[in-house]
């Protein structure tokens, strides 16, 4: 397990978590064992692209088509935080 998420890494949701839309909070949330995690819209978009097929670079490119700008370091830091909680698994082969 590395501390930095490589751009060639392929992030995917861990098997024990799932996402759903929380109408009360009007936010996408991630459900894990004994935890509910609310995501802001940018975070939800990133997580939705974590399909285990796309690389981090692919995700940044796709976000670039949707947003006025994309801060690569913020995407990587976000994924690192999720990976450190084991909600996201990153493979790099």
């Amino acid at each position: 397990m590395t501390d930095t998420v490589p751009r060639t890494g392929r992030p995917a949701l861990a098997r024990f978590v799932k996402t759903r839309y929380d109408k009360a909070r009007e936010r996408q949330v991630l459900l894990g064992p004994e935890t509910v995690v609310t995501l802001n819209p940018t975070g939800a978009d990133i997580l939705a692209l974590c399909d285990g097929q796309r690389t981090v670079g692919d995700i940044v490119d796709e976000l670039g088509r949707r947003y006025d700008r994309v801060v690569d370091d913020e995407v990587i830091a976000f994924l690192e935080r999720l990976a450190s909680r084991r909600w996201v698994v990153i493979t790099d082969e």
Binding site: T42, Y67, E74
Partner: peptide, 16 residues
């Protein structure tokens, strides 16, 4: 021309 969303720093907040 499709309008682009405004980038915000991606964040999460964790809460039986």
């Amino acid at each position: 021309m499709e309008s682009l969303s405004i980038w915000e720093t991606p964040e999460f907040e964790e809460f039986a």
